[in-house]
Write a protein that binds this DNA or RNA. Structure first.
Lengths: 222, 222
DNA sequence: TAGATTGTTAATCGATTAACAATC
DNA sequence: TAGATTGTTAATCGATTAACAATC
């Protein structure tokens, strides 16, 4: 168990996935799981699972395995999901409305408190019960309402300026849906969701599969 | 220039990003760029940029650099963005409606043709001008309308069965927004957008920054 | 206790970076 | 031609996998 070492991003990206599988197991009433069984289920090697978990602590028990519920709780705590996060959405256009709709479904622990816009025709309105405020008032709102996370749903050409204002206002994290890369100060965490990049990667893989199978009748191994 | 080698996923994930930057450069009227200049802009090492590109071909010219427009076109072709893709959305609930809204903004080359639902109250309706059909008719529609991509926006417990039906119907790719991992046959490409995983990773990073700065006043070296 | 499975160290593999000869 | 910058090979770094001693 390392002390305070920087965890690699590859590991962090796997944590939510571990947690999802543990959630399902718990729901099914499974009480314990070995790294080997977990490996068969989730598709990572048993070795990697143990290696990953031991970055954070020795959660298992030799000869037994891991407690499903215990491990679920540990990972939840590691991810910081044992508290509530207050969020605002910046930009109430199509993309912003999409995210508002999405977050309505979901996300215990993540609450969208308000949306902000520059467009006068939208300010004052509600979308899915969510109030839309004037972008001018964002800094004050973030400060007064203890907002943790800003969700950027504006046009790519305004994304950086919105990120700067959010950082200045004191958010601790930015969830960026604008199709551009933005810079934030070191005390602000950033997570990008580049949907079009994802779609382009899908297109690549579709064409790759086609190329590899169309030509020859040869079936690829693996 | 390798022949027909399997390209690593890390490389593929970078391609859309290269393309975005090249698009901006082209728009600004920049005609050529060296790997060094590109490195300063995009944040990958010059070495990595050259290494990445040379997986696909020698697009540069010694002593000169790369033609911005030329490279943009090459990468577009590599990604398969020189054609149109026809898509359908499975599930017209909140998440599906969100994606419908999102894809309206965007995406030259990616056309959403229809949505499908099981819920009788939604079938026959329109959302943002998009017709909602009965899920029963999906296979026929995919075949007749030459659909390339299915976008899964159903509940996680139905995601696998929808993926199976889409695969059977003959889609070449699946863009999965359900918060679960689905299995597809080898001739179908899959790209997952696990939004909640992304949000959880953001929470982790927020807490990590907090932990590292709150304790000691010590400023971390990179 | 014997058997099982972890936690952890060592070996391997793959991806990134550095170096440089080729060449425009 | 001289200078610049690529394409590509070699070196390094980091992440994954294998092995095994510790221990429940």
């Amino acid at each position: 168990m390392k002390k305070n070492a920087k965890i690699s991003n590859a590991v962090i990206k796997r944590l939510p996935r571990y947690r999802r599988y543990l959630y399902e197991l718990r729901k099914k009433g499974v009480e314990k799981i070995s790294s080997k069984e977990f490996s068969n289920l989730i598709g990572y090697t048993a070795s990697q699972i143990r290696q990953d978990l031991n970055n954070f602590g020795g959660f298992g028990q030799q000869g037994y395995g891991y407690s499903v519920e215990g491990l679920y709780d540990e990972i939840s705590a590691i991810l910081g999901l044992d508290r509530e996060y207050r969020m605002v959405i910046l930009g109430a256009g199509n993309l912003g409305q999409a995210i508002i709709k999405y977050t309505k479904v979901h996300k215990t622990g993540f609450k969208v408190c308000a949306a902000f816009e520059v467009k006068p025709s939208l300010i004052g309105k509600e979308i899915d019960g969510l109030k839309i405020y004037d972008y001018e008032d964002i800094v004050e709102y973030v400060e007064n309402e203890n907002i943790d996370i800003g969700i950027i749903c504006v046009d790519e050409k305004n994304a950086q300026e919105v990120a700067d204002k959010l950082s200045f206002a004191g958010v601790k994290g930015i969830w960026n849906f604008a199709p551009t890369d933005i810079e934030v100060p070191p005390h602000v965490a950033i997570e990008n969701v580049h949907l079009s990049d994802s779609l382009h990667a899908l297109a690549y893989h579709m064409n790759d599969i086609h190329k590899r199978t169309a030509h020859t009748g040869e079936s690829e191994k693996q």
